[in-house]
Design a protein around this nucleic acid. Structure first.
Lengths: 114, 114
DNA sequence: GAAATACTGAAGTATCTGCTTGACAATCCC
DNA sequence: GGGATTGTCAAGCAGATACTTCAGTATTTC
């Protein structure tokens, strides 16, 4: 995997690792909403929400746009797509690894009984 | 989502958010291996690897078993499956949210032209 | 233009993370 | 038994993280 892509995956997992940020994504899945309204049900300040939004934007999980004094936030699919791609690529590796586990156990068995 | 499950997802994303831990998973995808051999290509001490392994075990991404003085590590599919499940569940939400974005934009358009 | 609204930025803080070192325990090999 | 190998535990530390407050800016509303 290219170094750059690795860093993106890094940020992506890091972003999704925080419960408040996942809560923000859940709220946004109900539709576009302003920062203030986003902050209301979350037990943190407006500033904190702004900081989370910046992180979510950097890994393309959220898109925001400011019109007048209101910043409207919505889900951005790009980050999510990237995550799915990572998983798809790794699932095959992991499945291979389970095959190798089979070989490993068979070998152990052979050594034990041989 | 149940509170307990949420905490599991929390640990899962947190675990995958660290590049060293993802490197460990990549090494393990080549097949089962001991802690010492796992630590060799990683630029950290044996102790650090042990700490990472504990985290990876807690979210069921890795299984380890100690026989004699050697702890053998391998991929455990459970955590990976849980991650795929989370994504599958959330993809539909996110797709709905993109539909709502369409509605949102249509509404805006209506307000602008009405 | 004044007051209210919706954010933004800087600075500070408590806690968490990843990592190290050094001492220790268990096991294997001779 | 003695020495090497393999891993574990406890403590400590530098840096990152999530969060706060407070002051400021831009925009809307009256």
């Amino acid at each position: 995997m290219p170094e750059l892509e690795k860093a993106e995956i890094d940020r992506l997992f890091h972003a999704l690792g925080d419960p408040t940020r996942r809560a923000i994504l859940d709220l946004l899945s109900r539709g576009p909403i302003s920062v203030t309204r986003l902050a209301e049900p979350l037990a943190v300040t407006l500033t904190a929400v702004g900081q989370h939004l910046q992180i979510l934007e950097e890994c393309e999980l959220v898109h925001t746009e400011k019109v007048g004094r209101v910043r409207t936030c919505r889900i951005e699919p790009a980050g999510f797509t990237r995550l799915e791609k990572w998983i798809k690529e790794h699932r095959s590796h992991w499945e291979l690894s389970l095959d190798r586990l089979g070989e490993f156990l068979a070998e152990e068995d052979e050594n034990a009984n041989g």
